[in-house]
Design a protein around this nucleic acid. Structure first.
Lengths: 207, 207
DNA sequence: GAAAAATCCCCCAATCTGCGGGATTGAGGG
DNA sequence: CCCTCAATCCCGCAGATTGGGGGATTTTTC
């Protein structure tokens, strides 16, 4: 039984190219190809794809919103983003939307079948730089001006705890927490919880 | 000029194996091999590696702590985690510590040189399932009991804003925010900001 | 021995929070 | 057509929280 694949891509040449590659493989077959998400979603139930090759920049519903819709209707369907641009925002939005991989197609190479294999094997196909971006999103910058204890306190704030709760959790007095907060505010040049979180969060200084 | 690689691995057989593979390549040379992080850190400056192959389970300082130390002293040095186990905690801790890749070595295959190439080419070498885990950490579960508006309000809470600030940002009255919060508390069966964040956060219902 | 970090204490005014009551509008389903 | 639900808004109140100011001591680190 061949695995069923739907292709969503507004450029007809690229779309047909993908479809030809998929159909010529022994493992996969195209169960639907569309130029926009709206059409694809309409036939999603009938097509019953196990995997969707999705372009990001589409007229109407874009690829990210489309991914959300597809995952809502068919949670087990894998969505692979295939695009020419690698804007960092798009990458993370796509992954948050439920995409199972993000491939930047470098014009000539078309390892779609290889990437599809990888996706079905329990992997997450990504281009070199995408993988790097994703991994780097984890490494926090380490040159935080905050001391270890101050970071713990700020993490408590980030979790919405009150000073008293933080004090309890860290086995210190509420007054100590206040002292730390005062120092944090001074170091970050802010004067409120929300601002401190904004500054520290943007530099990934928390947790 | 060959790229310099340090190997940290307590099993001498595996360590020697890695060293042999690296030294036999045209592009890389081993500049240091150690059974523990302590020794490696002592010679880090002298060795001046561009990349470190790091085991996770080590006597004394473990691979995660070791990665942090190395990145602190040599931020531009790439650290690749090479391990037999793939505990999910370890993966994310490693990446947060600054690791540039995470490879599960399946006994026979030793594509160390291939992975090293990928790392130096601006990629983030990862095993199939590791990549999947990393990507999945982004997709939030979508079956949130909260309405869209309630989620926005809760996100405001998560950012440390006060009710008034949230009201301003969402262009609604403070009283409306309070209503939403009341509903959120009821839906999540909690009665404080911190608890709501804990429940919603653990299910990835925010942002 | 100085500097930094971490701990603790006091005061005060303004704000925020959680809880108790409500109300109105509009959209969508049965 | 009615009902529900989400979303909007309103009032009052007691108690906690917050940010700002002024200190202090100890331990660690250099």
């Amino acid at each position: 039984m061949k695995k069923r694949i739907t292709i969503i891509e507004d450029n007809p040449i690229i779309r047909e190219g993908f479809a030809a590659v998929v159909n010529s493989s022994a493992l996969y077959e195209v169960c639907g190809q569309y130029a926009c998400c709206e059409d694809a979603l309409k036939n999603l139930h009938a097509d019953a794809p196990q995997l969707v090759l999705m372009d990001i920049d589409l007229p109407g519903t874009n690829g990210i919103e489309g991914t959300i819709q597809i995952k809502k209707k068919r949670p087990d369907c894998i969505v692979l983003i295939i695009t020419v641009l690698e804007g960092s925002d798009k990458v993370f939005q796509s992954l948050c939307a439920g995409a199972g991989g993000y491939i930047v197609k470098n014009s000539d190479t078309e390892d779609i079948v290889k990437d599809t294999n990888e996706a079905f094997s329990g992997g997450a196909p990504m281009s070199l730089h995408i993988a790097k971006m994703v991994v780097q999103s984890f490494n926090r910058a380490q040159d935080s001006p905050l001391s270890e204890r101050e970071t713990s306190v700020l993490r408590g704030i980030a979790e919405g705890k009150s000073y008293s709760k933080i004090a309890l959790d860290l086995f210190i007095s509420k007054e100590t927490v206040r002292s730390h907060i005062k120092n944090i505010y001074q170091k970050l040049a802010v004067n409120s919880k929300a601002d401190a979180l904004k500054v520290a969060g943007s530099h990934k200084w928390i947790s």
